[in-house]
Design a protein around this nucleic acid. Sequence first.
DNA 1: ATGCCAGGTAACACCTGA
Length: 259
Amino acid sequence: MTIKIATWNVNSVKARLPNVLTWLKEFGPDVVLLQETKCVDDAFPRLEIEDLGYNLALHGQKTYNGVAILSKSPLEGVVSGLPGSDEDDHARYITATVYGKLRVVSLYLPNGNPIDTPKFLYKLGWMDRLKVQMEAAIASEEMVLFGGDYNIIPTDNDVYSPQAFAQDALTQPESRGRFRSMLNLGFTDALRAFHTEPHIYSYWDYQAGAWPRGNGILIDHILVTPPLADKLVGSGIDKGPRGQEKASDHTPVWCEIDF
DNA sequence: ATGCCAGGTAACACCTGA
């Protein structure tokens, strides 16, 4: 069977509910990884999404962060929180098994700006803890997918103006180096497996007319283990949602799997 | 160099985002 898996930072699931429901109906993804839901689990618009045939795994918090997994298959083995982050109350990581055999992670990696503050060190530490989970995923030899808002611009080909982001946490050598070291464990970047062209983006700032000007950055990524990379049959970015009324500043990145 | 825009919370301003 072939399934579509997408990741989307919705910037508040409540504010974005009409956009999310429309997109679920039109695009028809089988599994969706959401970030920045910005609401506690009790406030999540559960019924509206369940009505479209999705099962839910939620890890939310008030005002900030919040991640979720939607799946047309049952969800098994749900675990919330990035292991090793016991004293960290940010809701940025949730994982579950879908279709009985595919482990998926929805992650919201810290932004890390400004770079001369503890926020940047928090980002780097979070990446180090994420890498531990990615090492375990490789060692398991299972099909595992880590998708989400990585808050990493991997190369200067992934940003409209490298100069504008030269001092940004999203492009620092420490951030990029850690992202490359994750790939070097043996992961495949699902988008880049099919699209090598420069300057394709998943985020456009609300400010300064970034969307109409095409001033974007690529920070939403899907990384998969080798057993899953063998089953990738396509990927892409759906720019449609970014052009609609009351849009999130991110748009969905997706991949297709035949397994 | 700063704010631009947007969401949430709380309160009629401030924080965070990237």
